[in-house]
Design a protein around this nucleic acid. Structure first.
Length: 275
DNA sequence: CTCCTGTCCTGCCGGC
DNA sequence: TGCCGGCAGGACAGGA
């Protein structure tokens, strides 16, 4: 999926284009995705004005004037694309929900693998919502400190790479940025989490933020099918140091990048730089 | 508890 | 050329 930078990019794109619009019509082409769509979704949304667009973890929160929020998660392959030109909507394969707004925009939720989800929650209930209650700290917030890091990992024997992808520890870091930030920190992804000392924790926090911020600056990464809400591709993938680079020379020391599997997911690292 | 595996679904790529 | 296995940016349940 889109990881934090991609979701952030989509949110910023949406915020610039759809705030102030009203939902005119909502058409769903199926009953749901990973979970069923909310009951009466169209009735709840139609006529409502969009007040805000925000991100929590990898969730997009579209706040409405009825004090509820539309929650959208893009899963692995979801896209939320806005077209602004008031033209007739042309259905594409895997368009699951089509939102039309009062200013002639069409927002389509397209998701081939259907791992995403859409829900509607009262704003006052968001933090208690099943999807949100277990979430850890935002990596770009001040809550992600080395004290938090070190106390969390105390009894964790889990690989550090798997841990930084765990959304109950820190949110938004997915498979790409986990490998990339460990490379920048010179930390081997196979290290048990509780072997990370405070100096390394500080460095890793810094590098996670650097990598995420750099990716946001670049408009996210575009692999197979992620596109920004404008429909434009991001270009952070050109700056990958290790992700998808198996067998290629390390940018720092020219050692071949290695690919391993951890918790069922591919991990890329430089066996020479990362200790 | 902690940690790992399997699973949801479609599409794409590489190997044969 | 075509078929097939494996893999893909996530997250959850369930089991060891």
């Amino acid at each position: 999926m889109p990881e934090l930078p991609e979701v952030e990019t989509v949110c910023r794109g949406l915020a610039q284009t759809i705030i102030g619009d009203k939902f005119l019509s909502v058409t769903q082409k199926r009953e749901g995705l990973r979970t069923p769509f909310p009951e009466n979704m169209a009735a709840i949304l139609e006529g409502r004005k969009i007040k805000s667009v925000a991100r929590r973890a990898k969730y997009i929160l579209i706040g409405l004037d009825s004090d509820v929020s539309l929650i959208v998660h893009l899963g692995m392959s979801g896209k939320l694309v806005v077209s602004e030109d008031n033209t007739i909507y042309q259905e594409k394969k895997h368009d699951h929900v089509i939102f039309k707004t009062s200013t002639g925009k069409t927002i389509t939720y397209n998701d081939p693998r259907r791992f995403g989800l859409i829900d509607i929650v009262k704003n006052s209930d968001i933090n208690h919502h099943k999807l949100f209650s277990h979430l850890g700290v935002e990596p770009l917030s001040e809550d992600f400190t080395s004290e938090y890091f070190c106390s969390y990992i105390k009894n964790k024997n889990q690989n550090i790479k798997v841990l930084i992808m765990d959304q109950s520890f820190v949110v938004g870091v997915g498979n790409i940025y986990a490998s990339e930030s460990l490379f920048s920190s010179k930390i081997c992804p196979k290290r048990p989490a509780n072997s990370i000392n405070q100096v390394e924790a500080k460095l890793l926090i810094k590098e996670i933020r650097n990598v995420l911020n750099a990716a946001i600056e670049s408009g996210g990464s575009t692999l197979r099918d992620y596109v920004r809400s404008s429909g434009d591709a991001g270009y952070f993938q050109h700056y990958f140091n290790v992700y998808n680079k198996e067998g290629k020379p390390c940018s720092k020391c020219a050692t071949e990048i290695v690919k391993i599997k951890q918790a069922g997911r591919a991990t890329y690292y430089c066996p020479s730089c990362q200790k």
